[in-house]
């Protein structure tokens, strides 16, 4: 039992990050509302940031700001993943901005953000009825 607990404590980050990745992926793949897709994308990327940053942790290390204890690398956590993720977050915001701009443009042209409706209209046919009942709306 204790062995299992130790395994969980060493690995639970991966488990939780995986759950978040799955939720984000579900949002991107299964939702038809395009805004929900962008929200899923943001959840997915934040889960990846979490994975990266947790990987930078070193037991006993403090924040990578050199203080009076000197420059011994063992005293601080790994700063390189911090840099990578810091820039990735900013680029992620840029990506969300462009995605939302495209969505607004789509809305201006088609009057809806339902992916199926837009795809059907672009293909030149009416919306296919997938056997959805009216109470399925939403």
């Amino acid at each position: 039992m204790t062995a299992l607990l130790e395994l969980f404590l060493a690995r639970y980050i991966y488990l939780f990050v995986l759950v978040l990745l799955a939720i984000g992926l579900y949002g991107v793949l299964a939702k038809t509302d395009l805004v929900k897709k962008v929200i899923g994308l943001t959840i997915f990327s934040t889960a990846i940031y979490l994975f990266f940053i947790e990987g930078s942790l070193q037991e006993g290390g403090t924040a990578p700001v050199i203080d009076e204890r000197g420059s011994d690398p063992a005293l601080y956590v790994d700063p390189l993943p911090h840099l990578l993720i810091l820039t990735a977050i900013v680029v992620g915001v840029g990506v969300v901005g462009v995605a939302l701009a495209l969505l607004v443009r789509l809305y201006r042209t088609h009057g809806t953000l339902d992916e199926d409706v837009i795809a059907a209209r672009l293909a030149g046919r009416e919306v296919a009825d997938d056997g959805d009942t009216p109470e399925d709306r939403g």
Partner: peptide, 9 residues
């Protein structure tokens, strides 16, 4: 960049 994206949206 951020102000531009917001204005454009």
């Amino acid at each position: 960049a951020m102000v531009t994206i917001f204005d454009v949206l």
